[in-house]
């Protein structure tokens, strides 16, 4: 019984982190039809920026409780500085190209950013464990969990519900839905589609950077973070259906729980099951669990 409980709690924590990481990916695909490999770079950038800034913050003896705001600020800085540069500087000239070609372009940018990170931060690991330990721990079924994990779950809930509210409840959000539905007609109706793309890309990248920044205290920040998260995020987003927000939530829950179950009961299949589920979903529902009908062709 206790093990079942800890499977659930572990799975939920892992899902929350995956959801925050993958949410921006599905948003960017939904609006811009870009399968964005640089999403992994923003995750890594967020983690590194958080490690540096928080490290500096704590080294100067500033109040540790405010380090959570510093994590947030680090992600914000990264997203606002780098995302517009990439979207305005390169991606916007590529929108006419095929989806797969744009994917390759973001892959090229991903390779470049991988080395930019190494140039800026070097190849040695960074550790900032303080924010992780600071909040103490809570107990579920006799097992202690760092309270920090609740912060990860809160971050996922706020991001997901906030974005849903924004899209359904605000005027700008509804205009964005129009852009998603048909960018050409939206453009003809006087909507500034370019601005929507810029904001979407920046906000989506911010979500990736946030996931990276808030994960940074729980791991050692090393090169290759982006390589791992991007392919996991693909699995989450593909399972749920590319471009679907509830899909990303469901995908994250499925991947999180499947991983947690296998870690507890069959550790030798941990990685295998995630991609097996991804392949199975693609095989039986090629467009994911939450998918839209295909338009008529002739």
């Amino acid at each position: 019984m206790n093990q079942l409980l800890s499977v659930g709690v572990d799975g939920l924590i892992y899902s929350a982190w995956l959801f925050t990481a993958a949410l921006g990916l599905t948003l960017i695909y939904g609006v811009m039809k870009i399968v964005n490999v640089t999403h992994g770079s923003f995750y890594a950038l967020g983690a590194y920026a958080a490690a540096s800034l928080t490290g500096a913050w704590l080294a100067r003896g500033y109040p540790p409780m405010l380090s959570y705001l510093v994590l947030f600020a680090a992600a914000l800085v990264v997203a606002v500085l780098v995302a517009p540069l990439i979207e305005r500087g390169i991606l916007r000239f590529m929108y006419a190209k095929d989806e797969v070609v744009i994917l390759l372009i973001t892959y090229a940018l991903f390779l470049i950013l991988e080395d930019v990170i190494k140039l800026v931060w070097g190849v040695n690991p960074y550790f900032i464990a303080e924010p992780y330990a600071l909040l103490g721990s809570f107990t579920v079924g006799g097992l202690a969990y760092p309270t920090y994990n609740l912060l990860l779950i809160a971050l996922a809930l706020v991001s997901g519900l906030g974005l849903t509210w924004f899209l359904r409840g605000t005027r700008v959000g509804k205009l964005l839905l129009a852009v998603i539905h048909d960018p050409e007609i939206s453009r003809a109706m006087g909507i500034n589609v370019n601005r929507y793309y810029l904001v979407t890309f920046t906000f989506g990248s911010l979500l990736a950077a946030l996931a990276g920044a808030f994960m940074a205290p729980t791991v050692s920040v090393v090169p290759g973070l982006g390589v791992e998260i991007i392919v996991l995020s693909f699995a989450v987003v593909v399972i749920g259906g590319l471009g679907s927000l509830p899909g990303a939530a469901l995908g994250a829950l499925i991947v999180g729980l499947v991983r947690s179950i296998s870690v507890h009961y069959m550790p030798e299949v941990e990685l295998f099951v995630i991609y097996f589920v991804m392949a199975m979903v693609l095989a039986f529902r090629p467009r994911g669990l939450f998918s839209l009908a295909e338009p008529r062709k002739i």
């Binding site: 994917l103 693909f234 990685l271 295998f272 991609y275």
Partner: peptide
């Protein structure tokens, strides 16, 4: 499968092999 979905499914299949070999 075509386009993105061909790419993503083939990615998933190769990662399955990776997951199997690693363990």
């Amino acid at each position: 499968y075509r386009g993105i979905f061909f790419g993503l499914l083939s990615l998933a299949l190769s990662m399955i092999l990776y997951g199997l070999l690693v363990k």
